[in-house]
Design a protein around this nucleic acid. Structure first.
Lengths: 267, 267
DNA sequence: CTTGTCGTGTTATCATACAACCCTGATTTA
DNA sequence: TAAATCAGGGTTGTATGATAACACGACAAG
């Protein structure tokens, strides 16, 4: 048996804890946009860590676009509440409704990507898709090679849109969806599925090659509906029902707080 | 006159430069997934900075999910090449084709959001949208209050999709688009525009209230086409032509490199 | 009222030291 | 011989002190 021990080692770094703590202060409004943070020295003493750790935490928050600092002045909470990075909380994705929502978003992007691909694909794109399909045919269903080819096919479609952001976003969303599916691990495999899935992909490629925008959209929609069924999502149309907006906050569990971190940042 | 001096202060931190440099090594494949990075000491000497700076850079990369490190062993490039966060390079967005691509992506999301909103909106959603529209009517075109109400309207639409990720992504993309427009600053304002823009929004709301999915999509499409014209994008249909995939690398300009950073990380 | 100077406080960076930990290989032990 | 133990070096994590660069207000000089 392969025992399934989750990685509880998530961020044993002090800087991670400090960053989360400050992040929480911001999220919960105790530090408002435009506010100045305490000095690094003050933070270091209140948290009971070295100034170095505080600096690493601040570097992280700065890269996330939550705070902004200037030499000689101080560090400030950034004005716009929209951070410059987009993150998806892994824990939240375990909830069925969240997963369904993300799957829905992926569907939107994939279908439109197929449409643009049908309009803008080059010969190179088509051969790339064909190669990916061949890889799927050659590999056993569900194997690593099969999954890689599957991913490659969708990547090629995204590439064919000639819109880099499309590929970036689609890749990001798909990866999160894939992770979540793997984590759940309740996939059943059968020979029929291989044939069906392959057929779906082939129809997509055919439509894209023909430049058939509507057809490509429809084929991709079919494919996603099939995929939804295969991973256990039923009736993808009525997806989200009163799902609260998932906040991007507090990805760190408190139970594992270390002795040093016990204060609040700035009261 | 208000002279227009941009903030060139973007990231004068050494740690940012180091992080970008390592990030580029990964993106360009000189550091493959699973590879071990040079030791912090080695990086510090090759970059000509202190180990502290290297640590801040690594803390940042770790928070972005690109690197994984363990005490006593070393730091490694994470296996999946898909980072756990999504970022958009601000500099790249200044290029017209990039901006066009992002605008196109926004359009996809907005149109589909309108469709879902028409299907799933509640009374509360409708009143929120109505309030936002009222705010636009009351404020002068282009003013801060007007922009806020505009943003609020679109946020309400996204909220009405009952899909939190939709709101998250849409907000993220829209914010980047808005920043870019503000940075360009070549907006011309007229009274006609206020009326036209307001009308577009009203049609969207009407369709959503009526539960008219097709109508909401069409109205939103019109609105975005109008917005594209207003910000100087012409013929949004043939957006990207042979635009290379924008890699998420090198957000730092080299001309401003400081004396210390001149090496490569790990060859 | 403007300008220049100075002192203080803050961030940015450097340098060093130590603790915790992993890995390897030799040594001891069964 | 085979396994367990232990010592050593190497690496990351953290602490500490010092210096440079910068911002800002106070204050004097013009």
């Amino acid at each position: 048996m392969t025992l399934k021990l989750d990685k509880v080692n998530r961020g044993p770094h002090l800087s991670t804890l400090v960053a989360s703590s400050i992040s929480r202060e911001i999220a919960q409004g105790r530090l408002k946009p435009g506010d100045q943070l305490p000095t690094e020295q003050a933070l270091a003493t209140t948290f009971g860590v070295s100034r170095n750790v505080v600096r690493e935490a601040i570097a992280r928050l700065r890269s996330e676009g939550r705070i902004w600092s200037q030499q000689g002045r101080g560090a400030f909470v950034v004005e716009s509440n929209n951070p410059t990075v987009l993150t998806i909380d892994y824990e939240a994705l375990q909830r069925a409704d969240s997963f369904r929502n993300l799957f829905e978003l992926r569907g939107i992007l994939e279908v439109q990507a197929a449409a643009f691909a049908a309009k803008r694909r080059t010969e190179a794109d088509l051969t790339a898709m064909g190669a990916a399909l061949a890889g799927m045919r050659a590999a056993p269903y569900g194997s690593v090679a099969w999954l890689r080819s599957d991913l490659e096919f969708h990547r090629a479609v995204a590439e064919a849109t000639r819109n880099g952001y499309m590929g970036q976003f689609l890749g990001f969303v798909s990866e999160r969806v894939r992770e979540s599916i793997l984590a759940a691990g309740n996939q059943q495999k059968s020979d029929d599925m291989a044939r069906i899935t392959l057929g779906e992909h082939e129809r997509i490629l055919t439509a894209i090659r023909a430049g058939d925008v509507e057809g490509a959209q429809a084929a991709m929609r079919d494919h996603l509906a099939g995929a939804a069924l295969r991973v256990g999502l039923h009736d993808g149309e009525t997806a989200a029902e009163a799902a609260p907006v998932p906040e991007a906050a507090s990805p760190v569990r408190h139970s594992r707080l270390r002795k040093a971190v016990r204060g609040q940042a700035a009261r």
